Amino acid sequence: MSLILCKKHGEVGLIPTVSAMLSHGIKQETVIADDIGITHIKLIDEGELLGEKIYFFHNKFDNLKPFYLIDDDKSDQYFSQEISQIFSGGGHCVYCFKEYMEQIKFDLNNLPAPSGLTI
């Protein structure tokens, strides 16, 4: 996990799977729970599950599918192209993200895969 220097929490973990537009909206406190979309990623290599991840994005500005299966170079390249613009400049302080999600009552407990919100 990367570290950032948060104005509120000091040196803390960064959740990199938050889109730039969602992060901006959270900082401006303009995001509501219905604005948040998630994308579930499954990484498979030679039939073996390597991992799963959740990406968070802003429904009004970002356009992602709800699920991506990455099981070869072609699907990996396709996914990388899909997210490159959306997540460039994104990421958010883990504590700020969790606090804001609680504030707007977005349930982080029932996600289909790990979210990277380990503190």
Rank of each mutant, 00 (worst) to 15 (best):
M1T: 13
T39W: 01
I4V: 09
H9I: 07
F57D: 03
L43S: 06
I38M: 07
I38E: 07
K65E: 14
I15W: 00
V31N: 00
I54V: 07
G13H: 10
K7L: 10
K8T: 15
M1F: 10
H9L: 05
K8R: 15
K74E: 11
L50E: 08
I15R: 04
K8L: 15
D72K: 02
H24A: 12
L69F: 00
L64R: 05
G47L: 07
V18I: 14
G10D: 15
V18A: 02
N63A: 07
L3H: 08
F67I: 10
T30S: 09
K8N: 14
I44M: 14
I36D: 00
I32F: 05
F56D: 03
T30M: 04
K65P: 13
T39R: 02
G37N: 12
E29S: 11
I44S: 06
K53D: 00
L50V: 01
D35E: 02
P16L: 10
I32G: 05
M1N: 15
K65S: 15
G51I: 01
T17M: 11
K42D: 10
E48I: 15
D35Q: 03
S75P: 04
N59T: 11
A20T: 05
G10Y: 12
P66M: 04
L43K: 09
T17S: 11
D62R: 02
H24E: 14
H58I: 05
F57A: 03
S19P: 09
L43F: 08
F56H: 01
L49P: 13
G25H: 00
T30V: 13
N59H: 10
D72L: 03
E29Y: 12
T39A: 06
H9P: 06
S2T: 11
C6L: 08
P66I: 02
D76G: 12
D72W: 05
L3M: 14
D45G: 09
S75M: 05
I36W: 00
E11Y: 08
V12Q: 00
L50A: 02
I38Y: 06
L14W: 00
